[in-house]
Design a protein around this nucleic acid. Sequence first.
DNA 1: TATGAATGAGGTTTCATTCAT
DNA 2: GATGAATGAAACCTCATTCAT
Lengths: 199, 199, 199, 199
Amino acid sequence: MAGTRKSREERRAQILACALEVFGEKGFHAATVDDIAARTGVARGTFYLYFKDRRSIFEALIDDFFARLTSQIRSIDVESAEPPLTQLRMNLHRLCRLALDEPAMMKILLQDASGLDAAFDTKLGAFYKALSVFLEESLEEGQRIGLVRAGDTPLMVALGIGALKEILLNAGTGTLPRSADALVEEIMRFFEAGLLARS
Amino acid sequence: MAGTRKSREERRAQILACALEVFGEKGFHAATVDDIAARTGVARGTFYLYFKDRRSIFEALIDDFFARLTSQIRSIDVESAEPPLTQLRMNLHRLCRLALDEPAMMKILLQDASGLDAAFDTKLGAFYKALSVFLEESLEEGQRIGLVRAGDTPLMVALGIGALKEILLNAGTGTLPRSADALVEEIMRFFEAGLLARS
Amino acid sequence: MAGTRKSREERRAQILACALEVFGEKGFHAATVDDIAARTGVARGTFYLYFKDRRSIFEALIDDFFARLTSQIRSIDVESAEPPLTQLRMNLHRLCRLALDEPAMMKILLQDASGLDAAFDTKLGAFYKALSVFLEESLEEGQRIGLVRAGDTPLMVALGIGALKEILLNAGTGTLPRSADALVEEIMRFFEAGLLARS
Amino acid sequence: MAGTRKSREERRAQILACALEVFGEKGFHAATVDDIAARTGVARGTFYLYFKDRRSIFEALIDDFFARLTSQIRSIDVESAEPPLTQLRMNLHRLCRLALDEPAMMKILLQDASGLDAAFDTKLGAFYKALSVFLEESLEEGQRIGLVRAGDTPLMVALGIGALKEILLNAGTGTLPRSADALVEEIMRFFEAGLLARS
DNA sequence: TATGAATGAGGTTTCATTCAT
DNA sequence: GATGAATGAAACCTCATTCAT
């Protein structure tokens, strides 16, 4: 019934959008192909015309979001006209915008994508590893030029990533500010001064 | 393995311990009742003599760990002989010890326990909510007595919790220090001074 | 491939030819309508403009080949100018030619056509039954005129048919001769003298 | 319901027996796991306690029968007290007995086992190849010692195998004799003298 | 208490066939 | 005629849970 003949691309996008909703609501494991098909208003078989299997639509969502997410991060160029802190602030701003725009995807990426699958874990693990290494090197560089305080860089990176992940995951939720600007300001203050008052 | 008559409590504990291993290795979804029974060296049916269902053993693990975890956190008493920062430091120390002692449980709690089940999510959500509220109030109190810098407390709490969760999750992993002391030192520095050098 | 407007008959023949290839390569069960359409270079729907269903194209192939096969067999006329053995030899020759020309069809007929379908089995069974009866009568006639040795005719027919089927199925394969003449010579020798040396 | 608790081996044997019936009646492709389970009087899931999948029970049947079949064939020892022809006759006798005892298995092996699966085809192909090579060598040896007439051995082997297969497949069917002795006699006559009268 | 055979609901996936364009 | 998107029946297989022994 529902069907109403769509172009291939339209239908694919429609299924992806519905899958995003369903995964967001139920998580990967609880979301069945049936749920996705029903939400889309197509028959079960139709799903398989567009995606090889359940895992693959999840992967498609993640991969796409991942790409958009990483595209928001620009390497900080110490020689640029913009001061490094401004560059950092802009990176954070873009990430917060994304988190506010697509909370469902952010939740899927940050909460569901872990522990699904050996292949997936490898992929995610590789990303975090690469990110960590990159950030550690950045911190070390920052320490050298006096921008970053001294300390155990791997641990500092983990702390920073953890703090950021929590914000990205909960952006727009609960009592957190709804504006990217506000989020960025507070994150920057956290990075600049921690939580405690100057003693 | 099996055999060796056990008291009910011993047997239950034995199954719990094996389940912890299995959940830690495969995650909740991939871990079957069979895996747990086999690891314990008992028959499938025996499992059900000790636990109502698969969910309930997971819940038992989480609940128990949860209790132990929260028991490590002592409310900070401003009037105590110990300075508040020392009290905070001791809290962190106990948490890091726990994370280093039981990485599997920490992983299960922090990674797998989310999105399993409406009931579970509610329970976890309530905990985080309560924790957040408590921490927010603590921060506000801290701000009042000049111990905590000014700022959006919900956001500050989220940043702090995120940073801490990341450490607890990865404690003893990768390039992070293996000692609770080292972890605590760096976390405290992070809370005290952020990441950046004093400008 | 596709395009090039064809007359109905041409298109039908084209699909049949491709189906033959596909069935030959994958067998009836593994060959999907999609495989056939793709090989032909037409859309799936087009297939159904020419054939009622998947079974029917298989049946069309078999029926057609069957007709060609049986048309190669001429009843042996004892009164003809040609000696009966020559007539037999010519029958065999035509069959071997067919097998060498169309190994795929022969494989399909001899290997795949069995056990597909009650209807099909009935049809094939009827053919074999009729063939057997006919051959039994021929053998009996041959026995009467002293051309065929004494023996249990149904069994002798089965032995002969089996031997022949194996050759027709494997003609041009493995280490068997590639020429119809060679095949016929050896088959005739087998019929005339068995395998063993005159004791 | 049905279940009635069996020992593992009993139940396995029971399922195998029912599967044999079902495969014999419907062929591999048409036979569903449900058919087999229903025939056995157990639930679908029970089937999977005993066999990994549908293919594997088929393979188990074939492998077992295959082993029994090949165990009936004894290499012909020219130096033995028994004359070679007697040894051949005894081989044939054992095969015919098997075919009369287990017509369903014979049908499955000879008709269904072909074209199921790449792996299966390989296995069967290897068997036939080995058998052919062995028989060709035997024939050549026979030719050397004057027991077998001259001729193209691969072709002679194919003819002989084909004739035998047809008998084994149809033993006890139609108008063929029901006794192994009668079958063997006629097969031997065929091998010794072909079908035609001495000209 | 312990066992492990049995169950069957629930999910996945394939593909012959239909039908709107 | 031709297309290919859509359908849904039909099989497969897994595993949490029950229950007879």
